[in-house]
Amino acid sequence: MSTQHSRSAARIMIAPATFLLLAWMLIPLCMTLYYSFRRYRLLTPDRQGWVGFRNYENFLTNPAFTSALINTLVLVLGVLIITVVLGILLAILLDQPFKGQGIVRILVIAPFFVMPTVSALVWKNMFMNPVNGLFAYAAKAVGLEPYDFLSQAPLMSIIGIVSWQWLPFATLILLTAIQSLDSEQMEAAEMDGASALNRFWFITLPHLSRAITVVILIQTIFLLSIFAEILVTTNGGPGTASTNLTYLVYAESLLNYDVGEGSAGGVVAIILANIVAIFLMRAIGKNLDA
């Protein structure tokens, strides 16, 4: 049915979206690359010039870079492990029949809709604050010293906050996947005397493997660029204890006004994200064929 005419009409309909995305990707990307080889400080904008790879050298040899890289990895892996493991358990639980399923589902999913700045502030002030936070009250109530979460364990605290935000996402997707599990297969296994653990290990988990992959890959994209939570709670500190790559680039460019080094950092972040992206595209591309 698709004639030459409708083909060209289709092309015209796709053109705006394609063109805009192409521009959105290429123009800033080329600019970032350009600036990454230039000396450009916003405070002394007149002194510009080519500096070769010096910005990259400065960025990569900055001790903050190593710690930012490690922090980024710890943050991403920490949140992934917490959300996937708890997400699986929670999805299995919510899949069981019980009273008020719909309402509990709504309660569990809610944190995902809270904007990052709000959840960061609420956790920072009303829960983790060492003087007036709920955790401090709880500690005092049982006779313990209140713990100053965000200065004693800044990265772990941020992992906690971010996990709270992303657990609903993991749970919801895994729950959706579990619900498509063939119940007859489960019953047959149960009849054959497979224990609950075995049923989980040999039926549920393999069935969930694709959903788990999707959760991991999509969360990774978002987790690599965590920003607001860090800005609001710790400003990357104390020192660089909770600075991730995104925050470091932001700090270099908009707090230290070093556009050149910030751009070099941006390029590094893009390269790292692309390594992750290659895996993601493969997984989703496979699904597109199916």
Binding site: T246, G266, A269, A273
Partner: peptide
């Protein structure tokens, strides 16, 4: 979508 925002923050 994989392009990290911070990579194009400056431009």
């Amino acid at each position: 979508k994989m392009l990290p925002s911070v990579g194009v923050l400056i431009p």
